[in-house]
Nucleic acid binder design. Structure first.
Lengths: 205, 205
DNA sequence: AGCTTTCGCTACGACCCGTAGCGTAATGGC
DNA sequence: GCCATTACGCTACGGGTCGTAGCGAAAGCT
């Protein structure tokens, strides 16, 4: 994602091993210390590299944590469970498991908070974390429409709005349940959530 | 909320004026600096008090910011607009306006992130911010059931679960839309959100 | 008055930040 | 193989914040 110049430059290339060690050390420090007490000094020591190496690759703590957390979201997959409700349940279970990991809990919300006053950081989060999640919504929605479980749409703008709305409702509810209410997004909760999402609050129990 | 001892202690009482000045200065610093660059040094100077006074009243930055932000949530009211959809729209509009204020954006998410590794802080947020919002859901739900817009429930445990779910879905969606997706929770968005919330995604357009 | 608590002020050691400079290691171009 | 170029480890630095301690003065309660 850095650019289209994989190795066009002369000179000694950057160590990919160091990159992986630094990101792993960052997650380790997030687990033990949390975001606010995490220092680049400490991360460098854990990773076995010099502090200056960190500053050569990342602008600061925020960018480093975004990259470290973003790797976790690579694991998200959309299972084909046969029905829309089952597909959503599968994805949300994975998402809830991610939010259960301490390196994700403390890191993700912190950088989102920072991104409210840092537009480049917001864009970095959008590209490496949010977009990866939203793609699952797009695929799941396409499948459901093909199965006739969701009403089709013709207007592309209306479709984009519906996808955005669905994404904000699903991700927002799970995040709020987990991090604000502080209760687990487990199977029973997810199923009642999906019922409301698909049928609405007005539907009888 | 501190205890049942309003002025039972002898000696010089704490200055209520200083309290208000400190909380206002905290919000001002949040707007100008954001959470991560906010220092208690700076807040004390803005408020015209000594730094040591801050440490006598608050354990640290997190607790101070929670109290400063919590005051903003006092403004939330549940208007009686005649229908459930209109009531929700009124509340969500207020909530979106709150999240539009920079002192709220940067402060609220940051302390929520911190609360993932600080149980007392989580409880402080729950009591002074979350509970205040949830009460709006409880009232709105009661009104809607009285009007016959929502199915009644007999099991009190089931009722509590439904209220929690509704709260997480509403607050989560608005927060995610505003802070993660970075788009405004304006009138059109709110109305399409309410449609899905009440009728579900399966409902035809 | 006398007691108690708060307040402003100063000072302190500890820590982290972000950068600079140096010598050395590793690679690509010739 | 040689050289230019870049990455790396290391050390050191000024500047800033943290959280605490100690002091004398101020302000309220009884």
């Amino acid at each position: 994602m850095q650019s289209r110049t994989p190795a066009a430059r002369p000179g000694r290339p950057r160590s990919a091993t160091a990159d992986a060690a630094i990101l792993a050390a960052t997650r380790e420090a997030l687990v033990e210390l949390g975001w606010s007490k995490l220092t680049l000094q400490d991360v460098a020591t854990r990773a076995g590299v010099a502090k200056t190496t960190l500053y050569r690759r990342w602008a600061g703590k925020n960018e480093l944590v975004v990259d470290a957390v973003a790797e976790l979201f690579d694991e998200l997959r959309l299972p084909d469970a046969g029905s829309l409700a089952a597909d959503i349940e599968g994805v949300v279970l994975q998402f809830a498991a991610l939010l259960d990991r301490p390196e994700c809990r403390s890191g993700l919300m912190a950088v989102v908070a920072e991104s409210t006053r840092d537009e480049p950081l917001r864009e970095r989060i959008r590209a490496s974390v949010v977009e990866r999640q939203k793609r699952l919504v797009v695929e799941g929605r396409a499948r459901a429409q093909a199965r006739g479980e969701l009403p089709p749409e013709s207007d592309p703008e209306e479709t984009a709005r519906t996808i955005d709305l669905t994404f904000d409702m699903v991700a927002g509810a799970v995040v709020h349940r987990t991090l604000v209410s502080g209760k687990p997004a487990d199977g029973p909760w997810i199923r009642s959530f999906i019922r409301v999402l698909l049928l609405g609050l007005s539907a009888p129990a």
